[in-house]
Simulated assay, not measured.
Amino acid sequence: MNGGGKVVCVTGASGYIASWIVKLLLLRGYTVRATVRYPRDIKKTKHLFTLEGADERLKLFKADLLEEGSFQQAIDGCDGVFHTASPVSLTATIPQAELIEPAVKGTMNVLETCAKFSSVKRVIVTSSTATILGCKPPFTPNDVVDETFFTDPNFCLEMKQWYALSKTLAEDAAVRFSKENGIDLIVMNPGNVIGPLLQPTLNYSVGVIVDLINGKTPANSFYYRFMDVRDVSLAHIKAFEIPSANGRYINVDPTTTMKDIKKLLHVLFPDLNGESEMNGMAYKVCVDKMKSELGIKFTPIEATLRDTIASLKKKCLLI
């Protein structure tokens, strides 16, 4: 019970990765203050209250990314903060309002609140590999991507990659503010996260698997590398617990590409639609930092896929 007596805040707690972070924190003995936009929306929050330890050690708080000071009550007195809340979408009619503002302003809102309370020892921000992979010229099979790679915002603008831009600007702002204000900040950079769902609705990253099962090619999929949601969530918690953890951590299984996922799905669904060749961007990923500093081991991707599909069926999300 690593978290016995410790109080932490998880923002956007009803989301996919966040729900798993809450679950694992509760299992480790933490008291969790979970922020959501609509605490009274039982459909979105009910799954959190079914988690082991929730009755005794989970409390919901109303907070909005764009509402200054709305995280104050939840963060006051916390030992740590996991900031996961940020919109995920690859399409946007008004990118500034739909993606960029909530990501950047929301992150600053949370960090400015953290700076006010000396109880907060460390902040973990969920970023994305989208803040690492966006650059020109494209990667080649010999390129080895690690935490020293940074997306070029101009490339995002040029390519109209609004989600990547929102995450890149938010991460940049977070790092800058934390340095200026003495906040111990760690940035997690997950790829496409899959695995069983705790929440009742389909999220973007697991939607990629549903698309593949239905014979559709997901947008921007040639960039994707995958990782189990349980491993990603544990990596977040280890980044909080291990004193020497620092900087950024790529959260992907380097051996699993979109082609591998497609092959495995064909084994699990022999009559799968869409025989089209799945083109993936060829590049290598180095995750030595996550493995050596956080001690993360990967769930075999076949087990992850089986659990994802079982979960989708159970929640009637597979059409």
Rank of each mutant, 00 (worst) to 15 (best):
D260N: 09
L169A: 06
F82H: 07
P95N: 03
F222L: 04
K284C: 05
D79P: 00
Y30C: 09
V252Q: 07
V267Y: 05
M108G: 08
E293G: 12
V81Y: 03
L305P: 07
C135F: 02
T107P: 06
K238R: 11
F49D: 09
V123T: 15
Q72D: 15
Y163W: 10
I75D: 00
I100V: 11
E147R: 09
T140F: 07
F61V: 09
I94G: 01
N109M: 06
G182I: 03
F139P: 13
L202R: 10
E147P: 08
G53H: 01
N273E: 15
G29W: 03
I209D: 09
D271W: 10
S119G: 06
I100L: 11
L157Y: 04
P87Q: 08
R306K: 15
K105V: 13
S178H: 02
T256F: 10
G182Y: 04
D260E: 07
E302A: 05
W20L: 01
I213A: 12
K167H: 04
N273F: 14
V285C: 12
C286Y: 04
S119Q: 01
K263L: 03
H236Y: 00
V125L: 12
T45L: 14
L165T: 05
D41L: 15
K62P: 08
K23H: 11
I124Q: 01
V232G: 09
R176E: 12
R40H: 14
P218Y: 06
E67R: 11
A282K: 13
I124M: 08
E98I: 01
L99N: 11
L169C: 02
T107F: 13
G215T: 06
L305K: 04
M188D: 10
K297C: 14
W20P: 00
K284Y: 06
E275I: 13
R57K: 15
N181P: 10
